[in-house]
Amino acid sequence: MNYQDTIVEKVEGWLEITINRPEKMNSIREQTAEEILCALSEAEHDRGIGAIILKGAGRAFCTGVDASEFELREGEYFDFYRKRKRSRKVNFLFRELTDYTKPIISAIEGFALGGGLELALVGDMIVAGADAKFGMPEVRLGLMPGGGGTQTLPRLIGKALAKELIWTGRRISASEAKEYRLVNHVTESGKAVEKAQELARSICANAPLSVMLTKSAIDRGMDMALTDGMAAEGDASFLLYFSDDRHEGLSAFREKRPPAFSGK
């Protein structure tokens, strides 16, 4: 694919995707979403890639959806509704990330607002530079979160805090986001990518099938009763008994050497 809005680079054992629209504060248009989806699809089928780092160029991580593409023409309201549900790449991006099989780490410097914060929330972990700012300002514009924010945010920080942030539309600092457990780590300004790379390196050193199945068990289990979640975990755990990586991991442990996992 000819990447115009993003920079896609394989670094060691992971993929880094940079949203590269600094003049638009890295807002996402259809082209941007299509490029991210393409990069993610290719990475998902590449055994040499164990994680994804998502970041932004310039002063922002991402400030949401590019409003210039959001046109509602007279008499076409329900046509747009169908596009939103079935064909718009921007909407598909938010849904797709919730089922992605490899860890996604968002490295945030600067602003993560509206859909930009929602994009980070449908990933797995957030690392923020000290100067990062977070917020969902939609209510100030007569709108509401549309990229899953009313669902992902309360699941992460609880209903009361989620309602406060959404209903007031206020921005919070990286330190406050850490206090709310919205982010995993806060670094010095400009060091978020470095910390995300450290996490990716640690993840990629482990068995990729184990990472994939534990990710699925955690994500799906959050919406299950405890007994159902434990049953799902047990089934997933049993599958690993038949993997080459289990044999390699146990052999490496006995032989006191680093394992060479293959993802099989």
Score class of each variant (00 low, 15 high):
Ala120Asp: 00
Glu96Met: 12
Pro208His: 14
Phe134Gln: 01
Ile203Leu: 14
Lys83Asn: 05
Gly190Thr: 14
Gly142Cys: 01
Ile104Glu: 11
Pro103Arg: 11
Glu138Pro: 05
Thr101His: 04
Ala205Cys: 10
Arg95Ile: 01
Gly116Gln: 12
Ala130Asp: 14
Leu141Gln: 10
Pro103Thr: 14
Asp79Leu: 13
Leu156Ile: 05
Ala130Thr: 07
Ile166Trp: 01
Leu156His: 04
Lys85Arg: 03
Asn91Gly: 14
Thr152Lys: 03
Ile172Glu: 08
Glu76Ser: 12
Gly147Ala: 08
Ala207Met: 10
Asp99Cys: 05
Pro208Ala: 10
Ser106Asp: 00
Ile166Gly: 10
Arg86Glu: 15
Met136Pro: 00
Thr187Ala: 09
Tyr180Gly: 15
Ile172Ser: 08
Tyr100Asn: 12
Leu209Ile: 14
His185Ile: 12
Lys133Gly: 11
Ile203Trp: 04
Trp167His: 13
Gly75Asn: 03
Ala132Leu: 09
Val127Ile: 10
Lys83Arg: 13
Gly75Arg: 05
Asp124Thr: 02
Leu93His: 13
Ser175Trp: 04
Arg201Cys: 06
Leu199Gln: 06
Phe94Trp: 11
Leu113Met: 13
Leu199Trp: 14
Val193Ser: 14
Gly116Thr: 06
Leu121Tyr: 02
Val122Pro: 06
Arg201Thr: 15
Val193Phe: 03
Lys191Glu: 13
Asp131Cys: 07
Lys195Phe: 04
Val127Trp: 00
Gly110Phe: 05
Leu182Gln: 09
Ile108Val: 15
Asn184Met: 11
Gly142Phe: 03
Ala162Asn: 06
Leu121Trp: 02
Lys195Pro: 05
Gly129Phe: 02
Pro154Trp: 01
Tyr100Met: 08
Leu97Lys: 01
Pro103Cys: 07
Lys102Ser: 12
Val193Thr: 12
Ile157Lys: 01
Ser173Leu: 02
Gly169Ser: 13
Trp167Gln: 04
Asn206Gly: 05
Leu143Ser: 09
Met144Glu: 13
Phe134Ser: 02
Ala174Thr: 03
Lys89Thr: 00
Arg155Trp: 02
Glu198Gly: 07
Met136Lys: 02
Ile172Phe: 05
Glu164Cys: 01
Ala132Met: 07
Phe94Asp: 08
Gly123Asn: 08
Glu138Ser: 11
Ser87Asp: 12
Phe111Leu: 11
Ala162Lys: 01
Leu165Ser: 06
Val90Trp: 02
Phe111Met: 07
Leu209Glu: 14
Tyr100Glu: 15
Gly115Ile: 07
Asp131Trp: 01
Gly115Leu: 06
Ile104Lys: 06
Leu119Tyr: 08
Leu119Phe: 07
Val211Trp: 14
Lys195Ile: 05
Gly147Val: 00
Leu199Gly: 04
Lys159Thr: 06
Arg88Ala: 08
Gln151Trp: 05
Leu161Lys: 05
Gly116Val: 12
Asp99Val: 00
Ser189Thr: 15
Asp79Val: 09
Arg88Ser: 11
Tyr77His: 01
Leu182Val: 11
Phe80Lys: 00
Gly148Phe: 01
Glu109Asp: 11
Lys83Asp: 13
Leu165Pro: 14
Ser106Glu: 00
Gln151Val: 09
Glu109Val: 06
Leu143Lys: 02
Tyr100Phe: 15
Met125Ser: 10
Gly190Tyr: 15
Lys195Glu: 15
Lys163Trp: 03
Thr187His: 08
Arg181Phe: 09
Thr98Asn: 10
Tyr81Trp: 08
Met212Tyr: 07
